[in-house]
Every structure is written in structure tokens, then in C-alpha cells.
């Protein structure tokens, strides 16, 4: 039969397997996460009464999602606010426990979120070095890649900003530097949560090129974005989440068209 060790017949090997995943948030006090402020899930949270701690709410943010991501794929995630996109990514990264079901992954998926602050008191320079060391590079590798990272981020385009503390950066600059650091290493699985939205046009082009490079180097890239253009430009496959459920999973063109139709219906409804 087709069983040959190591070699793959037909589809490329999977890098992430999500099996009937349910994620339940427990929120203490005022909600901080986007999912809580969102419409449908917040209503759901109000329906489920607090169980253990006073003021603790349970939010069923991901309900029975299952899919297989393969090597070399770039997968877009779309859905309205609070549909569970970010939660799904954080569960894949192993940062949120699964209530039931499971996530299997190749290596350690890296999540690049929009709020992934590094060390704001320290200079951009130090953040580059520390970020790279934290990802497991040796000091020599860091020295080798340092210039490339700074150049890619474009931080020094308007003067010597890299030696300033990160708290002095604009949000776009900080996001660019974070992306430059995180993408300096070839991750098996890289997940990008709106992190590119704050960059300017030139940087978006650069980062899209870098994402294609990562994919060519046999990684898998997930991209959450509200910009359907950037999803169309970078992703061949798209998942559409709504209310924590997987509505559609297929080629980007089909899924985005269906999503736009549905969004159009909702906005024109009385």
C-alpha cells in the first residue's frame, strides 16, 4: 500500500491537527479579552451563571472546531469580532487549555499577537537580542541576524530609533519590530493575529514577502485579519469562524465570497 516511512503520498504532512476543540474562558472581574466584549459570546456569558468564584464567568468561545493544517499552507481566519479567532489561535499555541478535544502540533507553534509587548522599558536593540535569545538562538546567531532584523523592521529609517526604549515607539513601529523579531526564526507554525494591520504599506509588502518565504521554508502560517485584501493576497485557504463554530473551510476565494455575502445580508437586514 502507500505506507512508506517518512515519505508522503498525496497530501503534505500535517503540522497542526485540531480535533473537536472546545475552549471555555473563565473570566474574573471585568473582562479584558476581546471575546468577552463581543456580541454573541458576551450574551452567552450572561446566560451561563457564574459557577465557582463570585464574579467568574464562563465563556464558551470555541465550540467543536476541527481541521488539519498542512506543511506549506497559509491559512486565513476570518469572522466578525468575538467569533473566536484569537481564542482558537491561542489554544493552538498551547496558551489556553482545551475544555475537550485536543490540539496536536509539530514543534511549538509561535503566536504573534498585536498586544505581544516585549520589554517596553528596554531599548529596541535590547529587545531584538533578548527576543532572539528567548526563541533559542545562540549569541552568535543573534549577532549574525541583528542587522537584518533591524533593517527589516524599518525602525531606523527615520533616524536612530533602535537605541530608544520601546515605550517611545509608535504602536506601528513596535508592531513592526515585534514581527521582525518573531519572523527571524523559521517557525514550524507561525500564527499572526492582526499584527500586520498597524504597519504602513511598505512594511506590509515586506512582511507579506516574508510570510511567503516562511511558507516556502515548509512552515505553516495562520493569519487573522479583518482586511480581506491581505487575506486574499497571502492565503490560499481560509477558515470562517462565527460564534465559535467553523462555518466554512475551503479555498480563500469561495470562503471570502460567502463571508461577504453573509455580511452584506446582515448589514442590509432591517
Amino acid at each position: 500500500m502507500t505506507e512508506r516511512s517518512g515519505t508522503v503520498v498525496g497530501p503534505r504532512p500535517p503540522t497542526v491537527i485540531v480535533d473537536d476543540l472546545h475552549v471555555v474562558y473563565r473570566v474574573r472581574g471585568a473582562g479584558r479579552t476581546k471575546e468577552v466584549k463581543g456580541g454573541a459570546t458576551a450574551a452567552l456569558a450572561r446566560m451561563i451563571s457564574p459557577r465557582r468564584l463570585a464574579g467568574e464567568r464562563r465563556v464558551h468561545a470555541v465550540k467543536g472546531v476541527g481541521f488539519v493544517a498542512r506543511r506549506g499552507e497559509t491559512i486565513g481566519l476570518i469572522g466578525s469580532n468575538g467569533s473566536g479567532k484569537s481564542t482558537l489561535l491561542r489554544a493552538i499555541a498551547g496558551l489556553l487549555p482545551a475544555e475537550s478535544g485536543a490540539v496536536y502540533s509539530d514543534g511549538q507553534p509561535a503566536l504573534l499577537g498585536v498586544n505581544a509587548a516585549l520589554m517596553n522599558d528596554l531599548s529596541g536593540e535590547r529587545n531584538v537580542v533578548l527576543g532572539c535569545l528567548a526563541m533559542g538562538l545562540s549569541p552568535r546567531e543573534v549577532r549574525e541576524r541583528y542587522d537584518e532584523i533591524v533593517e527589516f523592521s524599518g525602525i531606523n529609517d527615520k533616524g536612530d530609533f533602535i537605541s530608544l526604549p520601546m515605550r517611545a515607539y509608535s504602536s506601528g513601529m513596535a508592531a513592526r519590530l515585534r514581527f521582525a523579531i518573531a519572523s527571524a526564526v523559521n517557525h514550524d507554525v507561525l500564527m499572526i493575529d492582526e499584527a500586520l494591520a498597524t504597519g504602513d504599506r511598505a512594511f506590509r509588502k515586506r512582511s507579506e514577502a516574508r510570510i511567503r518565504e516562511l511558507r516556502a521554508e515548509a512552515g505553516t502560517v495562520f493569519l487573522v485579519s479583518h482586511s480581506l485584501t491581505s487575506i486574499r493576497d497571502t492565503c490560499a485557504r481560509t477558515l470562517w469562524l462565527e460564534n465559535g463554530e467553523l462555518v466554512m473551510d475551503g479555498p480563500t476565494d469561495e470562503v471570502v465570497r460567502a463571508y461577504e455575502d453573509s455580511a452584506g445580508r446582515r448589514s442590509s437586514a432591517p
Binding site: V16, G66, F67, V68, A93, G94, Y104, D106, D249
Partner: peptide
């Protein structure tokens, strides 16, 4: 091709076949 899980193979088995581990273990 578009990766809905195949009920006949099972996620755990597929993961084991390709050496994938539970995320965040």
C-alpha cells in the same frame, strides 16, 4: 484536501503517525 478530520483515521492516530505532540504539553 481541505482538512476536515477524517472520522476513519482519528486525530490522535494521525498525530502519532506524523510525530505531532499535544500543544503546550
Amino acid at each position: 484536501r481541505h482538512g476536515a478530520l477524517d472520522p476513519e483515521v482519528g486525530a490522535a492516530e494521525l498525530a502519532a503517525r506524523y510525530g505531532l505532540g499535544v500543544s503546550g504539553a
